[in-house]
């Protein structure tokens, strides 16, 4: 049933918009996917599901940063609506504080960037504080990063907050959140139809991939390999920025077992797996001057939360 949930819009769209090419497309699509190592390829509908869920199609041509921004904004609107929560005013002290922490992390991530990474977001990152008790944080295409007040309260230090943000920025920069969209576009029957199609066809595609993107970042997660890769990149970013690289491990360790609450934990691999992959990161016996200072300003900000 889970497969049907994500694949259905794609399969339905394939039927709706691919009529003109349907006669010769299934075989071509099968070949297209097989050439790229897809497994269990059977029908056009299955192709869409298989490719999107298992990521068999590699990235080839990309969207521009403006396209990613437009898509990401619509995905962000969907995600925030589905969280059913109110965004804190951007001038609120906590929103400004999150913006500063996010800026440090984003710069460290950019400096550590790899050639295959997405470029820096067109309008920079936007860190949005969402008033919700659930512990949750979501990184979206276009540089939109939402962090709930529940996550801010669950963190015990600025370093742990930076760790949450670093994990989400890792997803954005590595293009994890865009990958299902790019894979959907690469479906042979869709690309054929979209290229020949009217603006209405493109509009249908846009609407579908917004839903697809929101499903991925909010519910399904980016897949185990990408989640573990985001953790590893986050630890590296933290170290580069001067934060405690073990902060993510400490946050996960303390909150493991809360998957039933949903949010941040339910769409990720089990905390035990993530902790094992991150490895031991022992903490110094005494806190550094920086940690003490950061803890003080973090606690002052948390007291400002509504």
């Amino acid at each position: 049933m889970k497969r049907l949930h994500v694949g259905a819009p794609l399969a339905v769209m394939g039927v709706l918009v691919a009529c003109a090419q349907l006669k010769d497309l299934p075989e071509r699509s099968v070949e297209y996917l097989k050439e790229r190592g897809s497994k269990n390829v059977t029908t056009v509908g299955d192709n869409a599901i298989t490719a999107v869920e298992h990521g068999d199609l590699g990235r080839s041509a990309t969207f521009s940063m403006e396209q990613e921004f437009r898509l990401g904004k619509s995905i962000a609107a969907n995600v925030l609506t589905r969280l059913g929560a109110h965004a804190l005013d951007p001038e609120h002290p906590v929103a400004r504080y999150l913006r500063d922490v996010g800026a440090v992390v984003a710069l460290a991530a950019a400096e550590r960037g790899a050639p295959e990474d997405r470029p820096y977001p067109m309008k920079g990152y936007r860190f949005i504080v969402v008033e919700a008790a659930q512990v949750n944080a979501v990184g979206m295409p276009g540089g939109f990063v939402a962090v709930t007040t529940g996550a801010l309260r669950a963190a015990r230090s600025e370093d742990e907050l930076a760790a949450i943000v670093a994990h989400e920025i890792a997803h954005v920069q590595r293009g994890h959140a865009m990958s299902p969209v790019e894979r959907a576009r690469q479906q042979e029957h869709m690309t054929s139809t979209l290229l020949a199609g009217t603006d209405d066809v493109v509009h249908v595609f846009f609407s579908k991939v917004v839903t697809l993107g929101a499903d991925f970042v909010l519910d399904k997660g980016c897949g185990k390999a990408n989640e573990l890769a985001a953790d590893a990149f986050a630890a590296q970013i933290l170290e580069d920025a001067g934060y405690d690289p073990g902060a993510l491990s400490r946050f996960l360790s303390r909150l493991q077992g809360r998957a039933a609450e949903g949010g941040f934990f339910s769409r990720h691999p089990p905390a035990s797996e993530r902790l094992a992959a991150l490895g031991e990161r022992p903490r110094a016996a005494t806190a550094s001057d920086g940690e003490v200072r950061r803890l003080a300003r973090f606690e002052a900000q948390v007291r400002e939360l509504p």
């Binding site: 080839s60 041509a61 969207f63």
Partner: peptide
């Protein structure tokens, strides 16, 4: 840094002309 719609990333050998053309469609303001 920025990328134009359809610019190739990763392994260009896996990109089809269709990918490149399609990346320029939709997703506009």
């Amino acid at each position: 840094s920025d990328r134009e719609p359809g610019e190739l990333v990763g392994n260009p050998a896996t990109a089809s002309q269709r990918d490149v053309e399609l990346a320029g469609r939709g997703f506009t303001e």
